[in-house]
Design a protein around this nucleic acid. Structure first.
Lengths: 235, 235
DNA sequence: CGATGATTTGAACGGTCTCAACCCAAGTGG
DNA sequence: CCACTTGGGTTGAGACCGTTCAAATCATCG
């Protein structure tokens, strides 16, 4: 978590690197020596809560893998409003834009809590991809999933009203991980509003509506009990 | 749907395959013999206007490369409304979802006019990717561009009002290809509405507004003259 | 305990959708 | 050649959803 010794070459903290890299689905099929080879080129950096990991304009040409902590990826629209794109947990990676295409990326990454990441340089990574093509397939799989996700979200914004988007967000939250019927929002309602393309006020109102309809029950500490999944699907 | 001569092996129409494949950015750096190797596994299929190339539920595990014609990729939302995701022109490809990840894709592909495509089988393509890793890098670049694009669109839907989205769509249309100040809409206004997440009525009204503001000039045959780019950016 | 920020609630405004009518261009069949 | 159909496009009026702004409340943290 709190790697005081950030910016250090990996040989100083190989242990933590290894745990980092091996977390990542795109690498976890490799032999241990291949993994070591990658580790040699990786750097570990840590960020305090609120610090910016990369910005839209200054193009960082690295792949970032979250070791510990939580990262907010967001964009700024022309009109200055920000939209939350996704949240990275340990094992997730980002930085793909500047990595493979020359276009400058337009998103920001910010540490939501104290966070440690591994950085792999663009040219290093490309060399690995050519050397170990199986990694590419993993990344391609990841990309196509993310693309599917993003296009789905786009469709939601374009065609569904806010209440529906909230309802489906809640259901997806249930599906992923929590098998109970109580889910904990992984972010503030402000962020949730940004993620769902609306305002905190509307989130607040719609959640109250859903509760009034008996579909959910709001609990303390960002917890929400899902009472009627079928009902939510029909919203 | 009723491909009279669909499913034919490539040796029946090798000439057309070569012209197809060589169009595609992801392959055009290969040696001619490598290209031939890929051609041997490709199939050529043609579709009449309006025919469905693939559907959301039935998962086709092929990469589709458009040889000639025009293809509409769209999704259906829960509520049954359709949203146009993108339009494929010759050289563009699709089918990436089912290709690399196991998840079922949720989009539809429909021929907008008579269209010919090359299909490359999933397992064949994966073998090529492992054999010629440079192709992966090309595809990764393409994916990251598309992802960037999709997330940008998502942000637009979430944060910008319809008029702004239209204005930016027009400007992007100018940037890509037409260096003149007249652009021709590549689709009906109905489709444009679907693409921009609004209704045909609103498109009609907003375009009229923009014309009234002296920013554009509507011309016959889906043509629009851009008069004031700066002004459009400020909308 | 005070300060700061997140959340809730209310009221008014505004944008966009919906629905309906109408127009227009391109076919089609008599 | 003309009625008729068909589908895209336009225009108008009203309803509705969600935003905005303002104020009050709650939470968290030093």
């Amino acid at each position: 978590m709190e790697n005081k010794e950030s910016q250090q070459a990996c040989n100083h903290t190989i242990g933590s690197h290894k745990s980092c890299i091996s977390l990542v689905p795109i690498f976890n099929h490799l032999e241990s020596e291949q993994m070591d080879e990658i580790l040699m080129t990786a750097q570990s950096v840590s960020y305090k809560k609120g610090e910016i990991i990369y910005q839209a304009d200054n193009q960082s040409t690295s792949l970032y893998i979250v070791n510990s902590g939580k990262v907010r990826i967001f964009r700024l629209s022309e009109s200055g409003k920000e939209q939350l794109v996704r949240i990275l947990n340990p094992g997730d990676f980002t930085g793909e834009y500047a990595l493979f295409s020359e276009s400058t990326h337009e998103s920001f990454a910010e540490a939501m809590v104290d966070t440690a990441v591994c950085m792999i340089n663009r040219t290093d990574l490309q060399a690995f991809l050519l050397k170990y093509p199986s990694i590419s397939l993993k990344i391609l799989a990841e990309f196509s999933t993310r693309l599917e996700q993003s296009e789905k979200q786009s469709t939601w914004f374009a065609t569904e009203k806010v209440e529906t988007r909230i309802a489906h967000y809640l259901i997806e939250g249930l599906a992923g991980g929590n098998h109970s019927e109580v889910l904990e929002l992984p972010m503030s309602k402000k962020d949730l509003a940004s993620y769902l393309g609306t305002t905190p006020e509307t989130i607040s109102r719609k959640l109250a509506d859903l509760e009034a309809q008996g579909l959910i029950k709001l609990k303390p500490h960002k917890k929400i009990e899902i009472i009627d999944v079928e009902g939510l699907l029909l919203v």
